[in-house]
Amino acid sequence: MTSDVAPRHLRTLFLSDFHLGTRGSQADLLLDFLKWHDAETIYLVGDIIDGWRLKKSWYWPQAHNDVVQKLLRKGRKGARLVYIPGNHDEFLRDYLGLQMGGVEIADSIIHETADGKRLLVMHGDQFDVVVRHAKWLAFLGDHAYNLALALNTVVGKVRRKLGFEYWSLSAWAKLKVKNAVSFIGAFEQALLTEAKRVGADGVVCGHIHHPTIRDDLGIRYINTGDWVESCTAIVEHHDGRMEMIRWGDIAGQYAVEFEDEPEIDKVAA
């Protein structure tokens, strides 16, 4: 990819569940995405740093540090950065209402889109029965999930040799663990109920690693997905239109598409 083309400029970026500090984090793909996208406001919707894993064993490669530095650099260049902690980075909830290194820390926030819609932005773990009432079970599920992540590479190689298409064992495992105790539908409904309670037109959340934009529930529900399996982001265009980007699917094509565009502004990657 060339760094001579100005990044795509958006009104807002919603990103969550990087899980920096774990081997499953797709930090390289995330860095690539951040090189190609700028925004006036960037919401980091929880589980950016995986404090659960880092407490047990330290894993912090250069790519993970580069993600943090890239985001902070965007803040220095004028982007507003809002960090909404999740359950894996809940240690930051001790600093709600403060600003650290130019990054605002909030438990939740109301975002107003360009077309006047009010969206409640929060991680969502507060409405997960596992995390809220049985944290030991959440940790157990987290161990199983990380084991599945470790097996992903082996499973992928075997499936390719057998001629099967890509399938994520970790995504399947996460879904099964969550479904055992808290159905996705119940989670979505709980978030929508909270959005209605605060008078919002919709909600943007993360947590369950299940990217979606839905308008069929009486109020808009948006889940940002994650940067472990789906590698998805939610973006708001300058007219208020919301879009999901599945970066793992389009990264290569995106570079080709923008290769021949004029150099609007030399922006360092």
Rank of each mutant, 00 (worst) to 15 (best):
A150D: 11
R93G: 00
I222C: 00
F164G: 01
H209A: 07
D4W: 09
V235I: 15
H9K: 14
E194A: 13
D4Y: 11
G24R: 13
A114L: 05
W167T: 02
I245H: 00
H210I: 00
I222L: 13
Q62K: 14
I208W: 02
N146R: 15
K161Y: 09
V129C: 08
L92R: 05
P61L: 11
V82K: 12
E112R: 14
K174L: 11
D201N: 15
M100I: 15
Y59Q: 07
R8M: 07
E194K: 15
T232N: 00
D215A: 10
P7I: 05
V228E: 02
K55S: 13
L44N: 04
H207V: 05
R93C: 07
G252I: 01
A171M: 07
L191Q: 07
L30Q: 03
Q62C: 01
N179Q: 15
Y83L: 14
V203Q: 04
I48R: 04
A6G: 07
A269S: 12
V228Q: 04
S3K: 10
Q189T: 12
P262L: 12
L140W: 15
L15V: 03
E194C: 04
D249K: 12
K176P: 01
V177G: 01
I110P: 03
E194I: 04
Y221C: 02
H207D: 09
V67I: 13
D38M: 10
R246I: 02
R197P: 03
D142C: 03
D239P: 07
D239N: 14
F258R: 15
K77L: 14
A251G: 02
E261T: 11
T153P: 01
A269H: 11
Y95I: 02
V228H: 02
I49R: 01
V267K: 08
F183C: 06
A39V: 06
V256W: 11
